[in-house]
Design a protein around this nucleic acid. Sequence first.
DNA 1: TTTAATCCTACCATTTTCATAGGGATTATA
DNA 2: TATAATCCCTATGAAAATGGTAGGATTAAA
Lengths: 133, 133
Amino acid sequence: MIVSAKGRYALRVMIALAARGGNAPVPLKELAEEEDIPHKFSEQIMTELAKAGLVESVRGKNGGYMLARSPKDCTAADVLRVTETSLAAAECTEKNGCPRAQICPTLPMWKALDEAMEELLKKYTLADLCSHE
Amino acid sequence: MIVSAKGRYALRVMIALAARGGNAPVPLKELAEEEDIPHKFSEQIMTELAKAGLVESVRGKNGGYMLARSPKDCTAADVLRVTETSLAAAECTEKNGCPRAQICPTLPMWKALDEAMEELLKKYTLADLCSHE
DNA sequence: TTTAATCCTACCATTTTCATAGGGATTATA
DNA sequence: TATAATCCCTATGAAAATGGTAGGATTAAA
């Protein structure tokens, strides 16, 4: 019941990107150093974020990454949905989660927990986080 | 970001115990079979729950486990606090969680998430869960 | 052509999870 | 007292996830 380092790194990079304003692509090396994230690991993360459409990449010299949307239109939930294997609180609520689904008394609770987490994470946009709210 | 099988098992056993009414100790073997939980694994879990004071054990023949409190006074949060290594959403909010704590823009969000989860889990008592709410 | 960047894929060490195994200690009851 | 049923304790281990590392291919600016 814990967000992975990958997820935390991803969020921090996204916030750092948001803080830059977003006119020019920012080289990842810079962001990774700034955020104390292993550079090679951060590359893997950014590739995922790029595929998910949250950032855009510019290859070649003077390249880097830019946010694909305005910071106020990208939430923590958006980022974590990409990096985390699952945002579900328990396997139970995932597809083919559990054969006992029909009779399990705990399932509604896990669903409620999923919703509560999602609701909260959707409230935090990069713009919010950027202003150190 | 997921509750372990251990935690899910623990909850189910506690609910099953609550459903029994609680006059006599219930042998774990019975509960484990009923709930499709590996018996030996369930023993480890119950030992933890007993040490935490959530259940009482009766040794010897005709022994078993009983809830230590009324089902309405035991919440999902109580159970999961015992079985989960941490209920924190991110390492960040744990003791010595992060050297960046002072400057990290995401910390307040993790704290808020911790609180939201805890709040929700506290709302579900064994009595609630028992009635398949 | 050099350099700085992303992209791709494979590998790997460590930790955690989810058990399994075997036996010891305790107690009711026949 | 013998037996059986139960909890208690500790060790072991397989598999998966996590958190990286490594090396090079590709792209594009200067």
